[in-house]
Design a protein around this nucleic acid. Structure first.
Length: 593
RNA sequence: GCGCCGGUAGCUCAGCUGGAUAGAGCACCAGACUUCGAAUCUGGGGGUCAUGGGUUCGAAUCCCUUCCGGCGCGCCA
């Protein structure tokens, strides 16, 4: 927690001024919730545009343009506003006094890496669950997308003022981990010198279980092989799961993805009392669980459909299409049953905002889970499920085989090692989560404008390069470290920033806090990537103008004042680029060589 | 059959929770290196926002219809 509250950013500050103006005309009872201040699409309309008159006209019983004129008149008295116009259907366009932009840049330099940090989360607790890959093998590229998305979203929410917990749900209780155990047991016998032949169908063939067999042999010698399966299976299973989770944690670390908590499904059932059973009992008490029959699914082939009475959760009462079973025919819990108990634990731990990141193939599961969250929280908690679409792995446009057969199975780790974590992360975040992603191994390492990671990182490196040159030319002006630089440049004569290219960069920088809040509220980290690309693009463009027009260069040898002001601008750009890249979990390098 | 996600320039994708004349990259055409890093930049052509209706001051955005693509549809997780 920071002791010093951040200064209100420019858009929020101007919105407050517009609202005050509205209240002075319409009174304090007017509903101003729909009033927004935003950058106009067309820069010729000014720096900011307010929709107040159009939104309020109906309730006020006035024509939009007339109301707009009244509000505009109030705003003209504001000393930060240089010019106000009413345009189109009733937009109030205003241009800020250049001093306002200079002040904002001083805010950036003073705040440093805290610039853009927001309080909209108000310290509210948010639980973000992501990855949750089964502990039965290495992660593939699809898992990686969910991991990167969840991690960046968690970063973003934390930066926006939420108290974020990052969670991984370990599915260590179903039939799949028993298969894992049997597969590992084969490797154990192999490690003892036995010829196990080909791996039978239905077991995991991958080489990654060989070390598990080896460790089991080292720990237990031949002792396990003499026991019946009912005795060795829990031992082998626990060992295999532990080693798979170690492997997954390593894979995640290689991608710069972290979690605060790894939550075991098995612990819900076998740990401190049967929490799944308790949850079902509690729901039954509320009438939300009952014994009943389900209609058979329509369409398709369901020849093995057996009409029988079973234990059902009344998810239709909370918006689902049909009620959902909680017990399998053998009496054990369905995955859904444990998942209800798991989400109840989140609610019990005080979370009212839950976010789950799932693969798109789980889309059909959303309604029932949201229904369950409503039921276990008495409607107080909200679950937002973010689906990440599948990843098509390509190399120079040609599909790469993703089959699980050993040999041509491409793991996440292999991809990260080939192209680097920065490229993987940025590329996966340079797309909406619900759009299919083509991930081309050849393209993501290209050093061209086509490759957004490179382009943005180069922007940062280029800014640092300017400082290296400035320090060589004008040592007195440029302290060695970035922090000292920012401090010294706060006192630069920023009124020297008058070129349209410089002002455009100032405006772009000032958009950052607003962007962080919008991206966090929408749970859409990709907006940060696109913003960074635009900022880098504007910076590259302005840099190049200095080639034709030397007077626009950042370093002007005989003019320390102008140089200081422009270096302050570069410092501001670097602060925002580094901040945004940090949210994405991508490095901001000082040089690209 | 039902549900969910998607359909925007030739291609890959944005579009700021409903704003003004719908944007970027690639590709194509024409330009800029005695450089604070040309791994960059400038300009140009290119659109029935799949379709038809509705809501309102205003719709790519919200609601409904149809078409196309992906995913899912008791006792897998």
């Amino acid at each position: 927690m920071r002791a010093v509250p951040h200064p209100q950013h420019l858009f929020a500050s101007m919105l407050a001024r517009v609202r005050t103006a509205c209240e002075s005309i319409l009174g304090t009872t007017a509903d101003l919730s729909r009033v927004v201040v935003e950058p106009p699409r067309d820069p010729s309309h000014g720096d900011m545009a307010a929709n107040a008159a159009m939104v309020l006209a109906k309730d006020a019983g006035q024509k939009p343009r007339e109301l707009a004129e009244k509000i505009a008149e109030k705003l003209r008295a504001d000393d930060l506003i240089a010019k106000v116009d009413v345009a189109g259907p009733g937009f109030i366009n205003f241009t800020l006094h250049p001093r306002a932009w200079a002040e904002e840049l001083r805010v950036v330099l003073a705040a440093g890496s805290d610039y853009g940090r927001s309080e909209i989360g108000q310290g509210e607790k948010v639980n973000v669950e992501y990855v949750s890959a089964n502990p039965t093998g290495p992660m593939h590229v699809g898992h990686g997308r969910g991991a990167v998305f969840g991690d960046a979203l968690a970063n973003l929410l934390a930066f926006a003022g939420y108290a974020v917990t990052r969670e991984y749900y370990i599915n260590d209780a179903g039939a799949q981990v028993d298969v894992l155990a049997r597969s590992a047991f084969l490797r154990y016998r192999e490690a003892l010198g036995e010829d196990i032949g080909p791996i039978p169908d239905g077991l995991y063939p991958g080489d990654y279980l060989v070390p598990v067999g080896g460790e089991l042999a080292a720990e237990h010698g031949a002792a396990l092989s003499a026991k019946p399966e009912s005795e060795w299976l829990p031992i082998v299973r626990a060992k295999a799961i532990a080693m798979m989770m170690d492997m997954i944690r390593d894979d995640l670390a290689a991608l710069n993805v972290r979690h605060d908590m790894f939550f075991s499904e098995r612990a819900l059932i076998e740990g401190d009392g049967d929490q799944v059973g308790a949850t079902i009992a509690s729901l039954r008490g509320g009438g939300e669980v009952y014994e009943g029959r389900l209609p058979p699914p329509k369409g398709g082939n369901f020849e093995d459909w057996e009409d029988r009475e079973q234990t059902l959760f009344r998810s239709t009462a909370f918006g689902d299409d049909v009620d959902r079973p909680l017990l399998k025919s053998d009496g054990s819990y369905t995955y859904f049953a444990s998942d209800i108990a798991y989400h109840k634990s989140k609610v019990d731990r005080g979370f009212r905002n839950l976010i789950d990141v799932w693969g798109a193939d789980h889309g059909g599961y959303i309604k029932r889970m949201q229904a369950a969250v409503k039921a276990v929280s008495a409607g107080k908690a909200v679950l937002d499920v973010k689906l990440v679409q599948l990843v098509r792995l390509l190399r120079a446009g040609e599909p790469v085989k993703m089959s699980k057969r050993s040999g041509d199975f491409v793991t996440l780790r292999e991809v990260v090692e080939e192209v680097g974590k920065d490229a993987v992360r940025f590329d996966m975040l340079y797309r909406k989560n619900d759009a299919v992603l083509d991930f081309d191994l050849a393209k993501v390492i290209e050093a061209t404008r086509e490759n957004p990671v490179f382009y943005v990182q180069y922007g940062h490196a280029r800014g640092e390069s300017i400082f290296r040159n400035a320090r060589a030319e004008m040592p007195d002006l440029v302290p060695a470290t970035a922090a000292e630089r920012a401090r010294a440049l706060r006192y630069a004569p920023l009124e020297k920033l008058t070129d349209e290219g410089e002002l455009a960069l100032l405006r772009r920088i000032a958009l950052y806090p607003r962007l962080v809040e919008a991206a966090a509220s929408a749970h859409e980290p990709h907006r940060v990537s696109f913003y960074l690309y635009e900022l880098a693009s504007e910076f590259h463009a302005h840099w190049t103008r200095g080639k034709d027009m030397p007077q626009l260069r950042f370093i002007i040898g005989n003019d320390p004042d102008t140089t200081a002001a422009r270096l302050a601008l570069v410092q501001g750009i670097l602060i925002v680029l580094a901040s945004g890249l940090a949210l994405l979990g991508v490095a901001a390098p000082d040089e690209m060589r």
